[in-house]
């Protein structure tokens, strides 16, 4: 009688001043039946990775608005690798220029969702790309 639920950590690394978008996404995930762990603003990569491990999530969804994505996203994926975490799907979102996306994908971010993305598309992507 296994009742697997998709657990997602919605995290905001860096110094963003608000988290409206992340909350909208968190709410959409909730409505899709996911268990969403929301950790609030201004998380360090170390805090995010610790939460990923303790909460044993299937998905890490990070959002950045400030422009620090090229630094912070790879830092998180690097730390995950160091901790031996290789079965968590990592996606990113926020204000991210098109030209940065290939670099992020090379660095372990499986997909990047920019402003205007339908939350349903994000949900479908997650459901189709779980690593366990």
């Amino acid at each position: 009688m296994s009742e697997k639920k998709i657990r997602v950590l919605v995290a905001k690394p860096g110094l963003d001043g608000h988290d409206r978008g992340a909350k909208v996404v968190a709410r959409a995930f909730r409505d899709a039946g996911f268990e969403v762990i929301y950790t609030g603003l201004r998380q360090t990569p170390e805090q995010i990775v610790a939460a990923v491990i303790q909460e044993d999530v299937d998905v890490l969804a990070m959002s950045i608005l400030s422009g620090a994505h090229n630094t912070l996203f790879p830092k998180v994926t690097q730390l995950l690798k160091e901790k031996g975490v290789n079965d968590v799907l990592v996606v990113g979102g926020g204000v991210i220029p098109e030209e940065d996306i290939p670099f992020l994908k090379e660095n372990g971010i499986e997909e990047v969702f920019t402003p205007g993305t339908n939350t349903q598309d994000t949900i479908e992507f997650i459901k189709g790309h779980l690593k366990r």
Binding site: K5, A26, R27, F29, R30, D31, A32, G33, F34, E35, V36, I37, Y38, T39, G40, R42, Q43, T44, E46, Q47, A50, A51, Q54
Partner: peptide, 18 residues
């Protein structure tokens, strides 16, 4: 209704995370 949840208690426990 959906079986989903928002678990937000960690927001107040950020430093304890690490």
């Amino acid at each position: 209704f959906t079986g989903g949840a928002i678990l937000g208690d960690r927001i107040r426990m950020q430093e304890l995370s690490v």
